[in-house]
């Protein structure tokens, strides 16, 4: 893909905005359409675009497979720990009311963290699946 300079330049311009948009969707999902699932996929799309244009080996340098696998499990664990935090603070599993000074604030923290966990897992799953598919050279 070295000769496609238009693709390379446009991709370089697009990728930061795709990442920014993913973060917006992630953290603004409480107020408008969006949330962890969508943000995760958009975040992954930026890495996939990079790997498509600049080659899979360069893609692996940007997001090493090992880091990606840690994030893959980390998202699920973050979700579980938010649930367990509810137990340790004296309530039930996944009860966010006790996470903050008031129930509404607690709900806000809980939902933000849980969505972050969802976003991490979804994005690293999509990146992992793409890398594995693209890395096959039959």
């Amino acid at each position: 893909m070295n000769r496609h300079s238009i693709l390379r330049v446009v991709a370089k311009l697009m990728i930061p905005y795709i990442l920014l948009f993913a973060l917006y969707v992630q953290f603004h999902g409480d107020f408008g359409p969006g949330g962890g699932f969508q943000a995760g996929v958009i975040f992954a799309a930026a890495f996939i675009l990079y790997a498509l244009i600049f080659g899979i080996e360069n893609g692996r340098k940007v997001m090493p497979a090992r880091v990606n696998r840690i994030l893959l499990a980390g998202g699920v664990l973050l979700y579980c720990f938010v649930g367990l935090a509810g137990i340790f603070l004296g309530s039930e599993f996944l009860d966010y009311n006790v996470l903050g000074p008031t129930p509404v604030a607690g709900q806000h923290y809980g939902i933000l963290l849980v969505e972050l966990g969802v976003g991490l897992t979804v994005s690293s799953t999509m990146i992992a699946i793409f890398y594995v598919f693209a890395g096959q050279d039959i």
């Binding site: 949330g35 699932f37 995760g40 799953t125 594995v132 598919f133 039959i138």
Partner: peptide, 24 residues
């Protein structure tokens, strides 16, 4: 449905991975 869509693509990917192995 929102969660089902994302789960759907993850399981589709699993199915496609199996297809690639079957081809091999």
């Amino acid at each position: 449905i929102l969660t089902a869509i994302v789960v759907g693509v993850a399981t589709t990917a699993l199915g496609l991975a199996l297809i690639v192995r079957i081809k091999e």
